[in-house]
């Protein structure tokens, strides 16, 4: 049932995207009024959106609540037989361990996303814009979702990240350009083929593609 649910979900997601005209870099405020040759990138700032942080914190809180519930379960085993106590304790401890690992993973991932995306964007933009007009580039990462490798083998899946790029005049803070950027990689084929298509470093590839789109947006590639 779980596999069919995932299968249906992926088909649905693909239909949504395929039938509705995907736009991977969408200008909200076009940079077209600025001569690209004049741009000099003075600062690059990458942050996580408030919803991203709140979402991770909410998942961490749920895991902490689960740990508390399991500890209470262990503490309230007085009336059970010794064998039963041992069995329940073992299951509860495994559950606690799993939740603790999940918390570490979530917190590490949140910190790493910010660092890695910043590195990717700095690398994509370094020495590319050396004009006379100083601009600040900021990217707020809204989402970063990776399908785990096991799910890709079984049924496929998709990896995606989205972020809001803002380009502002360093002196006046005037907003010069604003773009919504999506990187969406589907591995719907699943199986070993899906795994091969996905490549050895899907996370790094996704950040690289996203950073390239940031560069393209500043270069004026997506302006109408």
């Amino acid at each position: 049932m779980k596999i069919s649910f995932k299968f249906i979900f992926i088909i649905t997601a693909l239909l949504f995207v395929a039938s509705c005209g995907p736009k991977d870099v969408q200008p909200i405020h076009s940079l077209s009024a600025v001569d690209v040759g004049e741009i000099n990138i003075a600062n690059i700032e990458v942050s996580l959106s408030p919803e991203f942080v709140a979402g991770v914190q909410s998942r961490v809180t749920k895991e902490r609540e689960s740990i508390t519930a399991q500890k209470e379960r262990i503490a309230g085993l007085g009336k059970q037989t010794r064998l039963k106590q041992k069995q329940i304790t073992k299951v509860a401890e495994q559950s606690i361990e799993k939740s603790e690992r999940k918390i570490v993973s979530l917190e590490t991932e949140m910190a790493e996303v910010e660092t890695d995306v910043r590195e990717g964007i700095v690398s994509a933009l370094s020495n590319k814009f050396v004009g006379r007009k100083n601009v600040d580039v900021s990217v707020s990462v809204n989402s970063f979702a990776m399908t785990n490798g096991g799910a890709v083998v079984l049924i496929g899946g998709s990896d995606s990240m989205t972020g809001l790029l803002r380009i502002q005049d360093s002196q006046s803070d005037e907003l010069l350009g604003e773009y919504y950027i999506t990187d969406f990689d589907t591995n719907a084929a699943g199986g070993l083929l899906g795994l091969m298509v996905r490549g050895g470093d899907p996370r790094g590839d996704m950040i690289k593609q996203f950073s390239q789109k940031v560069f393209d947006a500043i270069s004026g590639k997506y302006d109408e």
């Binding site: 809204n142 979702a145 799910a151 998709s158 809001l164």
Partner: peptide, 15 residues
């Protein structure tokens, strides 16, 4: 400005 995105593979959010 309305932005929608997947938070996890099975949960999408709009801001």
């Amino acid at each position: 400005l309305l932005m929608c995105h997947p938070v996890t593979e099975y949960y999408w959010e709009c801001v």
